[in-house]
């Protein structure tokens, strides 16, 4: 059930059979949620964290005028709010973008891990610091990258993250997002996103059709995006 979480971790470090069993036992329930459901609300006391098993979710914050910024996309295998364990409440919401399947991990079980399993604790810690690294890269995109580079970068990042959890097919992957979702990730408007995707397509770098991203020219797309996967820490080493 949490196989994608294990794939994500094992791309970064060894996870022993014992540790795997503890992670599997940490899940108290699974749940199916529809599209566009806010699964975790900001400013509500939390006693569980959530793993995304299938689907696509995001962290977001809204302004009073309805403008929304998605601050990170979550792919299967991600703990979407592991930071709620130490924070106890979130400063942002977490929403499903498509019908999704989630696993619930009670905080008291995470507490148990932190008290008895130092290496597994460090792996959990690693995942929240990895989220922070992704946030920093998105800050760079939102603050400094051109719209073309911004979209290119996000498409490169998603390929890298989905590849780790076995959800790519060569240079291609499913991305069931709307233009509105993309615009909210990228700080652009849907019309602008559409035009910029056309520009990427006309440069023969990447296409996004029928909810499928196909990267035609990996080197070219990475160059436009100034993408390197360094910030995703895809290296297996003791942590």
């Amino acid at each position: 059930m949490i196989d994608r979480l294990l794939l994500k971790l094992r791309a970064r470090d060894d996870v022993s059979a014992d540790e795997e069993a503890i992670l599997r036992d940490s899940v108290s329930a699974t749940r199916d949620v529809g599209a566009d459901v806010t699964v975790v609300h900001a400013d509500v006391d939390l006693v569980v964290s959530t793993i995304l098993l299938d689907g696509l979710m995001c962290r977001y914050k809204d302004l009073q005028n309805g403008e929304r910024q998605i601050t990170e996309l979550h792919v299967p295998g991600d703990f979407v709010d592991l930071h709620s364990f130490p924070l106890k409440r979130l400063d942002h919401n977490v929403m499903s973008l498509v019908p999704s399947r989630i696993a619930i991990v009670p905080h008291d079980r995470i507490q148990g891990i932190t008290e008895t399993r130092p290496h597994l604790t460090r792996l959990l810690w690693f995942m929240t610091t990895l989220d922070a690294a992704v946030h920093r890269e998105w800050q760079l995109s939102l603050g400094r990258r051109t719209s073309l580079a911004r979209i290119a970068h996000m498409l490169c990042e998603l390929h890298a993250r989905l590849e780790i959890v076995g959800m790519t097919d060569g240079n291609s992957y499913r991305l069931p997002l709307t233009q509105v979702d993309l615009a909210e990730c990228l700080g652009l408007t849907p019309i602008h996103v559409n035009r910029t995707l056309r520009e990427l397509r006309s440069r023969n770098l990447v296409t996004f059709r029928s909810k499928t991203v196909t990267i035609a020219d990996f080197a070219g797309l990475r160059q436009v995006a100034e993408f390197t996967p360094d910030y995703l820490f895809i290296e297996k080493r003791p942590r």
Binding site: I191, H192, R198
Partner: peptide, 26 residues
């Protein structure tokens, strides 16, 4: 640049606003 997807909106007036915001973004 053809929009193959579209957006669900409450009125033509809201759609005009979306178009204006889109142009400003471009």
């Amino acid at each position: 640049v053809e929009d193959e997807e579209g957006q669900d909106l409450p009125s033509l007036s809201a759609a005009r606003d979306v178009a204006i915001e889109g142009v400003r973004s471009i």
